[in-house]
Design a protein around this nucleic acid. Sequence first.
DNA 1: TACCGGTACCTAGCAACACCAAATAGCGCC
DNA 2: GGCGCTATTTGGTGTTGCTAGGTACCGGTA
Lengths: 109, 109
Amino acid sequence: MGKLVTEMLKGTLEGIVLAILSARPAYGYEITARLRDQGFSDIAEGTIYALLVRIEQRGLVDVQKVPSEKGPPRKVYSLNAQGREYLEEFWRTWSFLAERLEQLRKEGE
Amino acid sequence: MGKLVTEMLKGTLEGIVLAILSARPAYGYEITARLRDQGFSDIAEGTIYALLVRIEQRGLVDVQKVPSEKGPPRKVYSLNAQGREYLEEFWRTWSFLAERLEQLRKEGE
DNA sequence: TACCGGTACCTAGCAACACCAAATAGCGCC
DNA sequence: GGCGCTATTTGGTGTTGCTAGGTACCGGTA
């Protein structure tokens, strides 16, 4: 999509991934594929893996290694209590920002 | 507001400032003050000035020095045609992202 | 056997952006 | 002169996503 979306993803991609994990556990390769399906056509694989490492180190997710029939073992991430709390705060922050922006957009018409 | 908002502002603050300028010309100090009034309590002054330099170099705004009665001369920025075009693309990108996120939020309930 | 494509993960170096901190400078007022 | 408000500028830092590779497991095919 281009540079604009890349910059906007900074700060939101983390929330997006956490939101995906809040629905059900998932592993990196799967998350990347799902995001691509949903229109984030240029999300880099490396980005997701780095992000997963980050949120794991912050203790927002639990990890479990699960063997795969098709390749190397998967690292399945699931949102824990702390992650859920963090996600809620993410939504609050997002709402704040979205409201300001919608207001600005209206004023510009 | 904290770190979360800081990261989210990456990529959106630029659009926010352009949107403000699309309503009417303004200068850095004024923009900072207005943002603070609107709830962006922790926006750093230096951030706005750096951003203004950036969008000026990209040719999105025109600049005019205007003397002030209360201090040093102001650099008044106004959105030009290229800036207006860019702002439209910003809104398109923002809409895309906002829709994905709203969808994710719904799924999480 | 050798190779290739799909699956799955990881890493090093880079660019962009917002932050902090400090400096500079004009003005009015005590 | 010194204080506070106005107004802009600059250098260094941390976080983040991207690029561009590499590793490794598996099934199918030549």
